[in-house]
Nucleic acid binder design. Structure first.
Length: 157
DNA sequence: GCCAACGTTGGC
DNA sequence: GCCAACGTTGGC
């Protein structure tokens, strides 16, 4: 798929894991409260592939893949007073925050850990590995994406 | 518009 | 729990 665009999305498995996505099959991916990350969300197109990354856990790793099934729409959580993502300052007419819909694609049998990724020269320039990277959603370059897919396919074969 | 203080992310 | 790296806030 030559024109597939790739992204990486971080999630804390204690909050929402790849297993949760597998169970739900599709989910509204919201709660992003950073303008840079929001802008990335808004750039995502239907059919784009997302690598799912588990952060803030025992073994931070790329654990699977999802696909975008609905492009950016107003994140419902920003208007939900019960939600920790409620934003009283977000105007109803021009909502501040966006969400996308993701569909589960696969959970890797062999996740690719952050530790291992650091040992791979091809991935050295990947955004995930740059110091100070804190964005929860960002694009993945084609060469990095192809490497990840090849690697994880081989490892799970 | 500058910048210090503060808060958050996330690996270790 | 520590700490580096940023983003945000708010006084001036």
């Amino acid at each position: 798929m030559a024109d597939t665009i790739y992204f990486l999305i971080k999630t804390e498995p204690s909050a929402y894991s790849i297993d949760d996505l597998k169970r739900d099959k599709t989910t509204s991916w919201g709660g992003v409260r950073n303008y840079q990350a929001r802008n990335v969300l808004r750039s995502m197109k239907k059919g784009d592939t997302c690598f799912v990354y588990h952060s803030s856990c025992d073994v931070p790793a790329v654990v699977g893949e999802a696909i975008v099934t609905k492009e950016a729409y107003p994140d419902p959580l920003q208007f939900d007073k019960q939600s920790e993502y409620y934003d009283a300052g977000s105007p109803q007419a021009t909502p501040r925050w966006s969400a996308i819909e993701l569909k589960f694609v696969q959970k890797y049998k062999q996740p690719l850990s952050l530790t291992d990724m650091k040992k791979i020269p091809t991935l050295a320039t990947m955004r995930l590995l740059q110091r100070g990277n804190r964005l929860s959603v960002f694009p993945v370059e084609m060469r990095h994406a192809l490497f990840l897919q090849k690697r994880t396919t081989r490892d799970s074969a």
